[in-house]
């Protein structure tokens, strides 16, 4: 099977600092892959390279949503990459705080809808239909992540856990084939994290998306990941199933610690 996401030897330099140093990584359709490592290992930088926020200094990133032909995405602007089927959430939540929860999700449909300036002004039947479809789809998405009662609530007023889930819903609204989650459990209480496990697996199954996530909560990572990549100082030091990673002496030394099999 061809890899959905194929990263080969990606390098990211900031001046003299090499934040990502020749990382290669594959995600196959339907997989949940975790990216772990100490703070400052370059995990989020790699995400930013994938989503077009940074232009990598070297290497290649390809995405292949259809399984026919891979497409190079490194260096493309963010919105083009999103249109090609890569969606993300952010480590420090970046919702549109002044907009309602529903509108946040509706914005995710932006790249899948077409109404332009003139269409919006005239507001003809086609524009109306598209708008109604967007509303219905966004509402259904909110229901799926359990936020339907807060649809009209301004995003900035939602609780922390709800904001995290809203970010996931917004990313899913762009109809991705690969979803990147940057520390989805950060700041959540144990109960919320527990529900997140189930939500992530459910999203993978229902939306037929592969998921690549950065996470520090090892219980969550070990529970749901099919494979795990470990990054340290910008280099990939290990890759394997949760069982293999837990027993890898280098990973234990670099990140997990002696009693890190939680």
């Amino acid at each position: 099977m061809d890899a959905l996401l194929d990263i080969r030897g990606v390098i990211m330099d900031f001046g003299g600092l090499r934040a990502v140093d020749g990382v290669s990584l594959q995600v196959f359709p339907g997989e949940i892959v975790a990216l772990i490592g100490p703070n400052g290992a370059g995990k989020t930088t790699l995400f930013n390279c994938m989503t077009g926020i940074y232009r990598p200094s070297g290497g290649e990133i390809r995405i292949d949503p259809t399984g026919k032909a891979g497409r190079r995405i490194d260096g493309l602007p963010p919105h083009r990459i999103t249109a090609l089927g890569l969606a993300r959430t952010f480590q420090n939540i970046r919702l549109f705080n002044g907009m309602t929860a529903l509108e946040n999700v509706m914005l995710g449909h932006h790249c899948r809808t077409t109404t332009g300036l003139l269409g919006a002004i005239v507001h003809g039947p086609a524009a109306r239909r598209q708008e109604q479809a967007t509303i219905a789809a966004a509402y259904a998405m909110l229901e799926r992540v359990g936020l339907a009662p807060y649809a009209d609530e301004v995003a900035g007023n939602l609780s922390y856990g709800a904001q995290r889930r809203l970010e996931i819903a917004r990313a899913l609204a762009t109809a991705p084939s690969l979803l990147l989650l940057d520390e989805p459990a950060a700041g959540m209480n144990p109960q919320e994290t527990f529900e997140l496990d189930e939500l992530i697996v459910r999203i993978r199954d229902e939306h037929k998306v592969a998921i690549l996530l950065i996470e520090h909560d090892m219980r969550l990572v070990m529970n749901i990941s099919d494979r795990i990549y470990v990054l340290e100082y910008g280099k990939s030091i290990a890759c394997g199933t949760p069982l293999e990673i837990r027993g890898n002496p280098r990973v234990i030394e670099a990140y997990l610690g002696e009693d890190g099999h939680a």
């Binding site: 969606a87 907009m99 109404t115 002004i121």
Partner: peptide, 28 residues
Amino acid sequence: RLQHSRIGRAWVALREDEIACAAMGVDV
């Protein structure tokens, strides 16, 4: 009309957070 349309929402989203806006597929 524009304010509550696809374009208007993109404008407001741009005001709220430019990076998130780009990551959600809006041509900034």
